[in-house]
Amino acid sequence: MAAGGDHGSPDSYRSPLASRYASPEMCFVFSDRYKFRTWRQLWLWLAEAEQTLGLPITDEQIQEMKSNLENIDFKMAAEEEKRLRHDVMAHVHTFGHCCPKAAGIIHLGATSCYVGDNTDLIILRNALDLLLPKLARVISRLADFAKERASLPTLGFTHFQPAQLTTVGKRCCLWIQDLCMDLQNLKRVRDDLRFRGVKGTTGTQASFLQLFEGDDHKVEQLDKMVTEKAGFKRAFIITGQTYTRKVDIEVLSVLASLGASVHKICTDIRLLANLKEMEEPFEKQQIGSSAMPYKRNPMRSERCCSLARHLMTLVMDPLQTASVQWFERTLDDSANRRICLAEAFLTADTILNTLQNISEGLVVYPKVIERRIRQELPFMATENIIMAMVKAGGSRQDCHEKIRVLSQQAASVVKQEGGDNDLIERIQVDAYFSPIHSQLDHLLDPSSFTGRASQQVQRFLEEEVYPLLKPYESVMKVKAELCL
């Protein structure tokens, strides 16, 4: 049975990233139509530049190519590739079939990587351009969430054990800070992308030097003109047959890092959902379990974690691919890159769409948070109580021993009897502590235990987050809708 299948058929496997999760716009960027249309555009740009620099290419040939950029006979191309065992030459023939007058000058002087690699770089750039505003929107939604809850005390956790208090907004800023680093890295790697350009079979530009009869300047002009037509500021000066596969490492490393950030955020949300302090959106008709109707599973956060793990592992592909590119190139890269580049971007696209949807509907339960604080705060307040007693004339050592005994009794009630923490009640009825009984409410005010959390939130948002989001103001209103 021949390899390949009808990918629109229910009898043929289709990647869930495309069929179930990723956005239509990201799927289109990695589609065959987008790819092969870009090949034709690159052939047109090459012909236009070659004509401008004096090669015998007519206006009629150029116009014929322009008129057929979208006229792609995919069936013919597939048949040609089956016959020739070469995808680029299959599309040269297919393009030439609908451009008979231009057929002889299509791909003039070029090698397969002229269309293959340059198209990949265009796709990487455009895919990054799709991700950047999506990530900015996630940051914006979380920034709104953090600002609104900047002063809401909550129990902090280290080692997932109760620690000092923080605020809900401050905790959210930990998430935002990681995503801001990801946004900066995505922008950097996007701006650092260079075009492969017009380089020939081993990167020496020998074929173009021959076409222009040894004119170095025209060869350099050709490279520059096509690079500018493709919208790049610069091209690699040095290439082998391909652009260095280190570029793929750079791009997928940034995406993998984004995956790590999203995994951490969504894990926190899942843990908070278990504590009943916070939940992701839950639709009115949504079913959490087929057997347990009360369940409210954090399905979206779980999906993000599941896909983020996949995204983090994909960076190993370009690392290994770059390491086995012998001399000017081997074909070890080809099949692998067809999979890992598309999957990385479709996965990143999915987790950003999902995280935006989550961040637009996060639900906080202040009463649950308050109750958990009441359970733990008495123990945390013991040092403040000791200091207040010393100020009232008591002995630190005597007070410490009193607190120690009462704390152990209260802990026994919590752990052995399943009761509430009654340390404060014990202190309130103990005559030894009568000098500070009137101060206990103040000493137990949760806001006095959150330090500068709310001020940190305000400063972080104003100095770091809002300036970073400013270039994306025009796209901030787009909502994230999930079908599944």
Results as ranks from 00 to 15, higher is better:
Asn71His: 13
Leu461Arg: 03
Asp191Gln: 08
Val429Ser: 12
Leu174Gly: 15
Ile105Gln: 07
Asp445Lys: 11
Arg452Phe: 08
Thr313Ala: 14
Tyr21Leu: 01
His159Arg: 01
Asn71Leu: 11
Leu461Pro: 05
Ala291Glu: 03
Thr58Ile: 09
Ile427Glu: 03
Lys82Glu: 14
Ile424Phe: 10
Asn421Gly: 06
Thr38Ile: 14
Thr58Glu: 13
Gly5Phe: 12
Arg371Ala: 04
Thr52Tyr: 12
Tyr34Ile: 02
Thr58Tyr: 12
Thr58Met: 12
Pro378Glu: 04
Ser253Trp: 09
Asp182Glu: 03
Asn71Pro: 12
Asn71Ala: 09
Lys75Arg: 12
Lys82Ile: 15
Leu55Arg: 12
Ser434Ile: 11
Val226Trp: 03
Tyr21His: 03
Leu352Asp: 04
Thr239Asn: 03
Arg194Tyr: 07
Met316Trp: 14
Cys172Thr: 14
Phe74Gln: 12
Met65Ala: 00
Leu209Ala: 11
Val251Leu: 14
Glu81Thr: 01
Asn336Gly: 14
Val189Leu: 09
Gly197Thr: 01
Met65Ile: 15
Ser448Leu: 15
Ser257Pro: 05
Arg426Pro: 00
Val364Leu: 10
Leu461Ala: 02
Lys199Ser: 09
Ala143Asp: 04
Thr111Trp: 00
Arg303Lys: 06
Thr167Phe: 02
Asp117Ala: 00
Met387Cys: 11
Asn336Trp: 03
Leu275Thr: 08
Arg300Phe: 08
Leu444His: 05
Ala431Leu: 10
Glu383Trp: 04
Cys399Tyr: 04
Val363Phe: 08
Phe28Thr: 10
Cys98Asn: 13
Glu220Gln: 12
Leu252Arg: 02
Asp192Thr: 15
Ile62Met: 11
Asp223Gly: 08
Gly418Pro: 03
Ala47Lys: 03
Leu258Ile: 07
Leu482Phe: 15
Ala3Arg: 13
Ile358Phe: 08
Ala150Thr: 07
Glu48Val: 06
Ile176Lys: 02
Cys340Ser: 13
Asn126Val: 11
Gly361Phe: 08
Phe160Thr: 02
Lys35Tyr: 06
Met278Arg: 02
Met76Phe: 09
Trp326Tyr: 11
Asp445Ser: 15
Gly116Arg: 02
Arg20Val: 00
Cys266Ala: 10
Phe379Thr: 05
Asn353Cys: 14
Thr166Gln: 11
Asp332Gln: 00
Arg374Ser: 10
Phe157Lys: 08
Ser112Cys: 04
Phe28Leu: 09
Cys113Trp: 01
Ser412Trp: 14
Leu46Gln: 05
Trp39Asp: 00
Ile269Cys: 05
Ser261Pro: 04
Ile351Gln: 03
Thr167Tyr: 00
Thr111Glu: 00
Thr94Asp: 07
Ile122Met: 08
Ser253Tyr: 09
Lys470Tyr: 15
Gln184Asn: 11
His400Gln: 03
